[in-house]
Computed example of a mutant assay.
Amino acid sequence: MAKKVLIVDDEPNIVISLEFLMKKEGFEVAVAGDGEAALAQVAAFQPDLILLDVMMPKKSGFEVCESLRADPAHAGLKIVILTAKGRETEVAKGLAIGADAYVTKPFSPKALAVQVKQLLEIA
């Protein structure tokens, strides 16, 4: 059974490229365009991993991450923050609130695919 990846970003071009990349790698994919939709999609789609932007409408990626980490039902969910915010303080905050990885844009699609597979323990 294919692992599920939820892409959360408010930039349509990024969503399209990430969706293409993750589907090409064999993942089942769902998309959310803001933080509130992300939380609803987690409940409905039950992803194994989330690619989560930080700067979004309604709830930031940091708020979504904190909310998911506060819920024991999502303890096994892998969270990759994928954002243009690459200052050390932001990276430290993202990891401190429970992200499994922090990737800055622009990113290498190949490297991101490898990282997603590593987090999901897919050879």
Rank of each mutant, 00 (worst) to 15 (best):
D34T: 14
G35K: 14
E36S: 11
E36K: 15
L39P: 13
A40M: 12
A40C: 11
A40Y: 09
A43F: 07
A43L: 12
F45E: 01
F45S: 06
P47E: 03
D48K: 01
L49F: 02
L49V: 10
L51T: 03
M55S: 05
P57F: 13
P57S: 13
K59S: 02
E63I: 10
V64N: 10
L68A: 08
R69C: 08
R69I: 09
H74I: 00
A75L: 07
A75K: 15
L77Q: 11
V80L: 06
I81A: 01
L82H: 08
T83G: 05
R87Q: 12
T89D: 04
E90W: 02
E90R: 00
A92G: 00
K93G: 06
K93A: 07
G94R: 06
G98R: 06
G98A: 09
A99C: 05
A99W: 03
D100Q: 11
D100S: 13
V103Q: 00
K105Y: 03
K105V: 07
F107N: 03
F107A: 01
F107V: 06
K110H: 07
L112H: 10
V114C: 08
V114H: 08
V116S: 01
K117V: 04
Q118M: 12
L119C: 11
L119P: 08
E121R: 15
